[in-house]
Simulated assay, not measured.
Amino acid sequence: MWYMGEARDALLDAAVEYAAHHGIADVSLRQLAAALGTSHRMLVYHFGSKEGLLVAVVREVEARQRAFLADLDGSLPPVEMGQRLWERLSDPAMWPYEKLFFEVYSQALRSRPHTAAMLEGVVESWVAPIADLNVRNGVPPGDARATARLSVAVTRGLLLDLLATGDQDGVREAMDRFLALYLNAYGGSVSE
């Protein structure tokens, strides 16, 4: 039925919002359902399990981040695009989502039930659009995918560093250095 998708989307939006303010990894499915104004049965119906809901939340937040990247003004210098994306990703308001991302990612890597879906596209969903952006910004097509993958790896590594240490200045300096390396390698072309 058409309204079931709308109900799922509304629950997912509410879970994303709840996660931003309270975190959800340590909350039981019943507690989360009560906080979202629904029943645990509805969450199970729409997401299969608590882990399925966590994966859905992570995927939704990731999709919003990719949409932010896609919406950045294409006339901006690539370094500035990278800096703006980094500012968004490293904003303390994003930390609850990022902690959840790494927690669910780790569970998926350990083959925890209902989290395997997390691994589907977790890298490629970022590599493909960044590689396209790289090519548009003058990175040779033969280098575009590898540099996009490197960009994803560096960004995730620095986010993990930031969450572990809280060293915003040190991590920002490292990202600036990474962007400068891209700038030097591609004559002014840098993405993410």
Rank of each mutant, 00 (worst) to 15 (best):
A7D: 09
V123H: 13
L43K: 02
G82E: 08
R64D: 04
E120N: 06
V44Y: 06
K99I: 07
D169V: 12
L109G: 15
T115L: 09
N137W: 07
A93T: 05
L133Q: 08
D9Q: 15
A56N: 01
F68Y: 15
K99H: 11
R8T: 11
F101S: 05
I24L: 10
A67K: 06
R136P: 01
A70W: 00
A144G: 12
V57M: 03
V79N: 07
P96Y: 03
D26E: 12
R84Y: 08
P129T: 03
D26H: 13
L53C: 00
V58S: 07
L133V: 00
R136V: 09
A35E: 01
D169N: 05
L29W: 01
L11T: 04
F178V: 02
D91A: 05
D132N: 12
V61M: 12
V79F: 10
V27C: 00
D132G: 14
V55M: 00
N184E: 15
L163W: 03
Q31I: 07
S125T: 05
G23V: 10
A20D: 05
A164D: 12
D143C: 09
D9A: 14
N134D: 08
V104M: 06
L53K: 02
L159T: 03
H40V: 04
Q65F: 11
V139A: 08
A20E: 06
A146Q: 04
M42G: 12
S90M: 00
I24T: 14
V104F: 02
D169A: 15
S106Q: 15
